[in-house]
């Protein structure tokens, strides 16, 4: 059994110091493991993985912080999805997604994919290549926040 660091979902905190940049972005990846305790109750644990296997559910957490003195306007966070990860969901953070390598963007339910026979089908989470959050208002000085999305190892 490999050494594993178990963290409860509620205890999820930025584990990496934010850089001394004006604006910092920290990236953490956890794997969701379902464990059943002695009473048969299922608990979802977030483990900081060194290794993963196909089918593992990953939780990507992005912590941003504006450590500068000026508001950060036109704030956009983009996460290209690793090729070996299938997008699952982004909770209620409503990101824009791209299904064509970052060229076009939209809500997933608005995007369509061309089929070989000329018809179009609705885009699926499987099609997602990039995820993007575009903030409509500036991040004030000292402001911070957290974004997340889930994916599955293909």
């Amino acid at each position: 059994m490999r050494t594993a660091l178990f963290l409860l979902f509620s205890a999820l905190l930025p584990t990496q110091a934010l850089a001394a940049n004006q604006v910092a972005l920290a990236n953490d990846v956890f794997v969701e493991r379902v464990s059943t305790d002695t009473t048969g109750k299922q608990r979802i644990l977030l483990e900081e993985p060194k290794v993963v296997v196909p089918g593992d559910r990953l939780v990507f957490v992005l912590n941003y912080r504006n450590a500068g003195a000026q508001p950060a306007d036109k704030f956009v966070i983009t996460n290209p999805l690793p090729a070996a990860v299938r997008f699952a969901d982004a909770g209620d953070t409503r990101p824009l997604v791209s299904i064509d390598g970052g060229r076009g963007w939209g809500q997933l339910e608005q995007l369509t994919v061309a089929m070989a026979d000329g018809t179009r089908r609705a885009a699926q989470p499987d099609d997602v290549t990039h995820i993007r959050w575009a903030f409509q208002k500036p991040i004030p000085a000292g402001g911070s926040g957290k974004l997340m999305f889930r994916g599955v190892v293909k």
């Binding site: 604006v23 972005l25 990236n27 500068g68 306007d73 036109k74 956009v76 983009t78 996460n79 290209p80």
Partner: peptide, 12 residues
């Protein structure tokens, strides 16, 4: 599997 995100912004 490598993951990196980026942020773009304008502080003036």
């Amino acid at each position: 599997i490598s993951n990196t995100a980026s942020a773009s912004f304008d502080t003036g």
